[in-house]
Design a protein around this nucleic acid. Sequence first.
DNA 1: GCGGATCAG
DNA 2: ATGGCTGATCCGC
Length: 825
Amino acid sequence: MEAMSDKDQFQNEDYSSSDEEQWEAAHTNIFIEGKTCNKSIISSSSGGQGLMPEKHGQKDSTIMNRMRLDDNKAGMQGLDRDRISQVILEASKGSRFYENEQRKEVQMQQRLSHQQDALSKLTPTDIQEAEREAFSLVEVLQATRDLNRTIVHIDMDAFYASVEMRDNTDLRSVPMAVGGMSMLSTSNYLARRYGVRAGMPGFIAKKLCPELVIVNTHFEKYREVAAQVREIFNEYDPGFCGMGLDEAYLDLTDHLENRRLLTDKEKLTFVHAICECSTETCPQDVADKSRHDSADRLAAPKQLQCERCLKYKEEAPITFGVSDEEAVKEMRFRIEQRTQLTASAGIAPNTMLAKVCSDQNKPNGQYKLTADVDSVMEFVHSLPIRKVSGIGKVSERMLADLGVTTGSHLIEKCGVLRLLHSQISFEHLMRVGMGLGSTRLDSWGSERKSMSVERTFREIHKPDDLYSKCEELTIALADDLQEARLVGKTITVKLKTVNFKVTTRARSIASYTNSYREIEAVAKDILKSEIHSMRPDPLRLRLMGVRMSSLCDESQVTAQGKQQTLTSLFAKTHSSASQTRTAQVSTYTCPVCSSTLMLTLSGFNRHIDGCLQQKEVLASERGVTVDHSEDFSCMESTTCATRDADSSLQSSAAYSASGMSFEESDRENKTLPKKGTRLLEKSNSHTQPVKSSHAIGEEQQGNRLCKYESQGEKQSRNFEKGSFTSTPKERPLSDSAAPPVIMCPVCNKPQEGLSMASMNKHIDECLNTSTIKDLLCSTTSDSKKPERKKPRLSLAGRKQKAIANEPSVLQFFGGKLQQKNNNAN
DNA sequence: GCGGATCAG
DNA sequence: ATGGCTGATCCGC
Ligand SMILES: Nc1ccn([C@H]2C[C@H](O)[C@@H](COP(=O)(O)OP(=O)(O)OP(=O)(O)O)O2)c(=O)n1
Ligand SMILES: [Mg+2]
């Protein structure tokens, strides 16, 4: 739907005039392809043309950007954005949430304005210079292009909603969403036609669609389905990367290599039935899913019942071919057969493209992007950059203001982008513009970097209650950390006021810990200073959170860093099999009061705390060991008042009382640790001329993927009792922790076991030995002839397979190269 | 290292 | 009346 020519026409007096300047500035320097950029590209994106501002019934385009419906989602094309945005606005106006959104909108406007300022100050010379730099990067990136991998991204359709529809026939034909009146996790495709989507509050969705049915979440089921689906993935690529519960990246290259050689007999055969009630095949879940003996099958034809129309159909065999597309069809068929849920997939030479492709024919479809440079470039050329993972609403807006809305613009405006964006951001944009992305899934790190718990509640402002909430969160976090056998030393407290204003306050401590008491002391101290900083006004909160970062595996620090607290001592003493899963409920004997208790380790520690404190208090009438001596409430609850086993039950009750249902808070949020390694140190050794305060964050989670490992058993543990099933993880954490052998991109020799700093140094030396200088000279002089962007990209797209193209290394290289360039200037 | 902001799922 | 939660990254200090 490119039919939204006016979508970025944001009226604002402050910048409407600078639009013209920007247009001029942009226009004067578009010559990258040797021909000046056609005006249509600019005019369509920067607005000012072809709009009739008279039709003001409060058009969608005049509504605050961040309050508008975000229809960048499958199944949401061709909606009446004007009307829908209008409804959302009506429902929002006057709310505290809305007020806060307005504040944020103003900030973004300032960013935009700043960007325009910077743009207008650029001289053509600046831009030419920057383009030369950009081109040398493009050269380097081009050399890394690897089209030999077959990457697939598979994504379940309307995942939570589909599961609910599968299990409740009544929901199949109505618009429905999963979540609660406060927040929806997702919606089915019928509901999407009304503008109802994930991340939208249920009560607003109801205004958009009064018939909307909202059902609670059932994470246990989603997790179950995810496990089934992953079993299938595992057969095609054991190294697949799961993201969240409902999607994954697979590298099918190896599988296809083997598949090519399969004889007909060796192919998997599945049984299914075709039914008139749908144009699609209707795979049925039969016990014997794969048969290798076709005679057998023909001898005993069965009747299968169609799920939809309940008619019985004669089963038929089905096999799939050896091509990549057939392999993916087979996977999707098996997923549907196994789970009765559909998935969509994208096939492409790298993850970035595969992700985009999987959305192309969603739902229940797949799309293959041919792995040759021309096809890739053609695809990217017209690709709206908003579809690229990592470019969100704000980035889209910032770039649109520079006339960049599609992949082709990224290359055309590379000079400006180079000048207005950070190195990292810029390089990512160039990569997107060139259709590059990760080609190796195994280079993606999987260690988590932080763990947190946060909760929304009805207003709390009484200090006692605030401390109490803080304690509750701290307990939950400590349990989570212990269960994951992690320790950390940076504690962050997050606060959201009733006006939705968010602040975070962090403090790093000397030693690693996951002890409830240590975390609590810090968190409460932070909270205390925040409360005090407000005086005499109260601190009125709607959300509080506690996060631990600077993480480390427990085993790596117990010896040195971590303090030998009561926690670890007693843990060793009393829970025999305790070495694993410390947050599980176990039987403990309190060394103080000698009672036998059934609870988590964390709970046990609190019990001991209480007992000890009670003793202290009894012994000496001074019971003040914690900092905030004034707040007795927070200590009160720590005393022996037997807040045993289920702290989560308590928190649930409190939460429920606050007006939200369990299920609403019981979300499957536990996303996996993501993101691959980033070898880039900081790279901002050179400061850009201007660069608004926050360079566009595209790329932020650019490649952040993750090995599928710990999946959220967190929230189920919170509420779904009896779910203490210790899910064995298929992958031990430290599979690729070994120091990698990195190929120096300059001298092309392997550099073993070097730290990042050493690697930096090595590359510096290499650069100084001028190998690269030559390259730079030649490429820049090449680039001077701005004749052949496209032919050139095509041409350079030789296989060049053997090139060591660890993406991150090349990123690094790009940074270094940039740095050198700047130093030279 | 900290705090704000952006992004995804 | 009701506007989530978890985790990650980037930027400018
Ligand atoms: N803001 C969000 C977005 C998603 N999810 C959950 C619910 C979704 O079902 C699941 C998968 O997210 P997707 O982005 O893949 O969305 P869907 O699978 O629901 O729809 P589709 O993939 O068909 O667009 O993650 C969530 O809790 N909160
Ligand atoms: Mg999905």
